[in-house]
Every structure is written in C-alpha cells, then in structure tokens.
Simulated assay, not measured.
Amino acid sequence: MAPVFRFAPSPNGYLHLGHAYSALLNFDLAREVGGRLLLRIEDIDATRCRPEFEAAIYEDLAWLGIAWEMPVRRQSQHFTDYRAATERLAALGLLYPSFESRAEIARTIAAEEAKGSWPRDPDGAPLYPGIARSLSPQAVAELKQADAPMALRLDMARAIAASGPLTWTEQGTGPGGETGTVAAQPGAWGDVILARKETPTSYHLSVVIDDALQGVTHVVRGQDLFWSTSVHRLLQQLLGLPQPVYRHHLLVRDGTGAKLSKSTGSTSLRELRAGGTTPADIRRMVGLSDPAAAS
C-alpha cells in the first residue's frame, strides 16, 4: 500500500511561507516514496473560515506546482463522523460537560494564581481548573434544560488510566530535539475540549478522525504541533484507530525569530506572487531544493 500524506490548512486567512514549506515538503516526500498526497480543508470554525480563503488555497498550491488527489475533504461536511466519535467516548465514561464561560474560567484561575502558581499546557495556556467535575447530575440536567453554552471535555485522568502509557514514532524532531520513539504526555494538556454545543468537534478530535478515515500513514507538520501529538495518540488509542508516523519540521520564522502567522499579518503567498516572486524563489526562501533543477 502506498504511503499517504496530507496537507491540511484552515481557510481563515491567506497562506504564507510557513504553509508553503509544509505543503511542499509533504508533496516532495510523497513523490519520493511513490505515495499519495491529500488536501484537507479544516474549516470547522465557521466564524473565521471564508470561501475566498479556501479558493486562494487551491490557487496558491497550484501555483507552487503541487498536485493533490480529489476529492478534497472539507471538515464542515463531516460533523456526523466527529459526533459519532464523541458518542463512543461518552459511552466509555470519558467525557463530561462544562458550562463556564471563558471569563468565568479566567477568574477562577486568577484566584488560584493569587495563591501561587497554576499549571499551564505546552502552548502556555493555563489548564482548565475542573470546575464542572463537581457538578451534580441534577445541576447538569438543569443547565442543559436552560440551553446553556456547553463544551464536552475529556476526563484526562480517566482517559490515561484507560489507555496506559503511549508512544509515537517521530521521524523529525521536537522542539527539544526529541526523535525516534517519543513518550506521549497527554496529561500536560489537562481536560481538553473535544466538542462544543455549536460545533460538534475540535481540532484534536477532527484531525484524528480524518487521518484515520483518509488512511493517512505519514503526518508531516510544524513543530508547534509536536506536543499536540500526545493528545492525538491518546484519542487514537481510545477509539481504536491506526497510528500514523509523524514528522515535525522546523518552523519558518520572521526576522525577529517569531513564527509566521496569519493573525499577525505575515506576508502572504499571493502578495509575494504579485511582487514577482516565482515558485522556484519560494522553494529557495524556505530552504527546499528545486526538483526540476535537480533533474
């Protein structure tokens, strides 16, 4: 069976050099091993994802010379797949509802931090303080009846107990030089949200389900997602899904050392193209050789 790679951008802005590097690397690696390249549109965030950004993704990738298999999987068309996964996890007793607003959670954490330090996840965000775990069944029923905003969280302690120790195969390197067999540390993320009332999935859940349903064998992505793999391995184990191999690559950074980002207005590929940059120039800018020149 041929290896399967995927590039999975979100249409919430225009692609920049960081996206170009990841897309080209996936394309090159798939071609080197006679594999397949899939394109997935991760558009579960209806408030930020827009059709013009999705159209620009196709345009930019084609301009770079990247070819992908059809059809393209759009996450917004597969909510039933993700809902089925949450139902399986709920049946295992591994999910619980939480009803607090972000402001309420922030106030609770601030009060705890006033007494001392508070644990944070690998991205630097404070861990959820577990407020909802103390709610009685009656209180939960009343909040649901009142149509309160709700998130479904993974009971991390129970999930880890159910899965046991986990590892993944890393063909790249982590931010600390981790490679080879890496021990997963999902507990570092706390009780992560897997779905919300208005959106029946999250990044962690949808990416795991999609990779399994699409038969992805090689996940090639940036180092900023290295430790997220711990949560993904946990969900794969709990749901009985296959485990891809992973390759986390260095991030493309700006002159200050910060990673490129849509939210900070990093120069887009369409801006570079309009200014006369060529696909070969893009390859040189991100440190990839030009296959045409090599041949």
Rank of each mutant, 00 (worst) to 15 (best):
E87V: 03
L24R: 00
R158Y: 03
Q145W: 07
A23M: 12
D290A: 09
L89E: 06
S266C: 05
G215S: 03
A55F: 06
S117L: 06
P11T: 10
A23T: 05
A184G: 03
R133L: 14
Q171D: 12
D224F: 04
R40W: 12
W227F: 14
T80M: 02
S263L: 06
R48I: 13
G180R: 10
Y96H: 11
L25R: 13
R283V: 00
R221D: 10
R74H: 15
S289F: 07
V216W: 06
I131D: 15
Q237E: 11
Q77C: 13
L29V: 01
D211C: 03
D254F: 04
R36H: 13
L25E: 07
Q171C: 14
P122M: 04
I105K: 02
T201Y: 07
L194M: 12
P279N: 07
Q138M: 09
T256R: 04
P97C: 06
A141H: 02
M156T: 12
A106L: 00
P11G: 13
L235Y: 10
T108G: 13
D191N: 13
D121E: 09
L260N: 02
P200D: 12
D210E: 08
G257E: 12
F5K: 01
L95C: 01
Q243A: 14
F27Q: 08
A139P: 03
R73E: 14
A84C: 00
V220W: 07
H16G: 07
S202Y: 08
T229M: 04
T169C: 08
A30C: 05
K259Y: 08
V220K: 04
L25F: 14
S206F: 03
V72G: 02
A151H: 12
A2I: 05
I282T: 13
A125C: 11
V140M: 08
M156I: 15
T181G: 05
D254W: 10
V219M: 00
L37D: 07
A91Y: 03
R6E: 11
T169F: 02
G93F: 10
G65Y: 01
T169E: 15
Q185V: 14
T173H: 11
L143R: 15
A55Y: 09
W227G: 04
R247N: 02
A20S: 09
E100N: 03
I57L: 05
A159P: 03
V286H: 01
I105T: 01
E271F: 05
P279M: 09
P279T: 14
W68S: 11
